[in-house]
Each structure stands twice: as structure tokens, then as C-alpha cells.
């Protein structure tokens, strides 16, 4: 049978050499294209930040519970005195654990309690967070001390800061990458669920600084920030240093205090996001 008269029938057990060759050629060329694409993709893919989530391992930390700027534990990590903010399992805060701690404290001030909590560590750069994975079961021990541990607070005055609002649980290690548009929906869910919003500041393509976002009275805010999550944003307010963290207190009724900032990101004509 000449090649032109050759005919392919798929339900037959075998194909003629002409068609077998065509199938092999198509398969090999497709495979080659696939491998080439994978290599190119891996070569040009954006690098990932060096964050870490100690998934599957529970760690015990001992320290003093703080409620400001967020629920956390003043403790020692890698020989350094730090505040480890605490978050709950999934996309929720850990406030039920705080409530249980208060109940168990029997009206004693939290600053006079020495508490051991167990959870999963989340780490990026010098910052450590902990997920109280086991909920109420995360409280391992509570002891009373005579000396109250008070946080050192220092006002740094009014400032305008440009950055991106991220959900810190994912950002500091649970997911990677956990910023910009591809993570926006998840970040909205996390912040909506009570995880404190953080303004992450980039310099030269690297994240350098972080601010807890609170309202002008220093109270937590969540729903108000949702439209601004995952996009470049410029915010002004009083900046305060609380131990090893910074806080930005924003007046949400002042429209001047908040604007979307697209410098270096996208054109300013894309201000359609303004809620």
C-alpha cells in the first residue's frame, strides 16, 4: 500500500508504519516542548522568600502573654527577647485561647503570668509567629510571678508609609508566596477571620519592615482593610514601637490617611479599586 493510500483506523489493533511514525514524532516533539517549557519556567520563575512553617512539629514556648498590639507571647527565641504573635488554626485568630487564659488566670493580670504554650512555629527573617494548632489544648502550663512584665512602647510620630497589606500567618511562612494578587483572596479570608493585618514594606525588591495596622485608638481592625489587601497602598498615622514590633495607627474616617499607591507597580489609571 503506498503512503498516500494509507488509512488510519483507531479501533484496529495496530496502525500502519506511516501513522505509527507520525504518532511517535508528535509525541517526541510534544515531550521536547514540554521539557523545554519546564526548564524555561524554572529558570524565570520568581524566587521565593526564605520563610518557614514547621508543619507537623509542635514546639513549646514559655513567656508572658501580651494583648497589645496583638495577642502574643513575650519570650526568647534564638537567644533573643521577642514577641511572638499568636494565631489560631486555619484562617482564624487565637482569641479563644486568650479568653481561656484569662479564665484560668482568675483575675490575675496577664503580665504577672508565666505561660507555656504549644504550637507550630512560623518564621521569616527575625520574626517568629506561632499557630496554636491545638486550640485550647495549646495551654500547657500557667504560673504566677511576682514581677509584672510590661511592654516597652515608644511613639515615633506621624508617618506616611507605603507597602502591601498581607496576612501575616501565610506571609511569614504558612504559604510561599503569600503576597500580591495571587494570594489576595486567601489574605482577605485570613484577615477577615481575625488574623491581624500587617503592612509589609519592600525596599529594593526585598521585604524590610512590618507594621501592625490598628485603628487610631490602637484597637484591632479587620473588615475595613479588606479592600486594600494585596495591593500597593499608602497609609498615614501615628507609628509606635512596641518591643520588637511596629504599629501604625490609622484613622479610617480620614480619607487622606489612606490611598492606593501604584508607583512602580501599575498605572495610576487603575484606581478602580477605591471602595
Amino acid at each position: 500500500m503506498n503512503e498516500k493510500d494509507d488509512f488510519y483506523i483507531g479501533w484496529q489493533d495496530s496502525a500502519s508504519p506511516t501513522y505509527s511514525k507520525a504518532r511517535k514524532t508528535f509525541f517526541l516533539l510534544s515531550l521536547l516542548a514540554l521539557i523545554l517549557f519546564a526548564v524555561i519556567y524554572l529558570a524565570v520563575e520568581k524566587p521565593f522568600i526564605d520563610s518557614y512553617f514547621d508543619y507537623g512539629n509542635l514546639t513549646e514556648l514559655e513567656g508572658t502573654v501580651v494583648e497589645y498590639p496583638v495577642f502574643g507571647l513575650q519570650t526568647t527565641v534564638n537567644h533573643q527577647q521577642v514577641t511572638v504573635p499568636l494565631v489560631g488554626f486555619g484562617k482564624f485568630d487565637a482569641l479563644p485561647v486568650l479568653e481561656k487564659l484569662k479564665t484560668q488566670a482568675n483575675a490575675r493580670p496577664l503580665s504577672k503570668l508565666r505561660v507555656t504554650l504549644r504550637g507550630t512555629l512560623i518564621q521569616y527573617q527575625e520574626k517568629t509567629w506561632m499557630e496554636l494548632t491545638e486550640g485550647d489544648e495549646s495551654i500547657i502550663n500557667i504560673e504566677t510571678t511576682e514581677v509584672a512584665q510590661e511592654a516597652i512602647r515608644r511613639s515615633m510620630g506621624e508617618q506616611r508609609i507605603t507597602g502591601e497589606i498581607v496576612d501575616p500567618k501565610c506571609f511569614f511562612g504558612v504559604m510561599n508566596p503569600a503576597y500580591k494578587k495571587i494570594h489576595r483572596a486567601c489574605a482577605v479570608r485570613c484577615i477577615s477571620g481575625g488574623i491581624p493585618p500587617i503592612l509589609a514594606i519592600r525596599e529594593g525588591g526585598e521585604f524590610k519592615d512590618y507594621y501592625f495596622i490598628l485603628d487610631e485608638k490602637g484597637q484591632p481592625i479587620h473588615q475595613q482593610v479588606l479592600p486594600y489587601v494585596g495591593v500597593p497602598v499608602s497609609m498615614s498615622g501615628e507609628v509606635e514601637e512596641v518591643e520588637d514590633w511596629k504599629v501604625l495607627k490609622v484613622n479610617w474616617n480620614d480619607r487622606q490617611a489612606l490611598s492606593l499607591d501604584f508607583s512602580g507597580e501599575v498605572s495610576s489609571c487603575e484606581l478602580a479599586l477605591n471602595p
Partner: peptide
């Protein structure tokens, strides 16, 4: 990954977490 274990039904969350339907970039 992005929508479960939160305060909203995951399918609803796909549609309602990012509401920038009026912006091409976002």
C-alpha cells in the same frame, strides 16, 4: 488551600474575597 478553614463557604469565597470586578488589573 486559599479558601477553606475560613469564615466563609469556600465556593462563595472564590467569588467574594476579591471584589475588584471593575478593574482589569485587580
Amino acid at each position: 488551600n486559599f479558601h477553606t478553614l475560613g469564615d466563609m463557604n469556600p465556593i462563595k469565597s472564590v467569588f467574594l474575597s476579591n471584589l475588584s470586578y471593575d478593574s482589569l488589573i485587580h
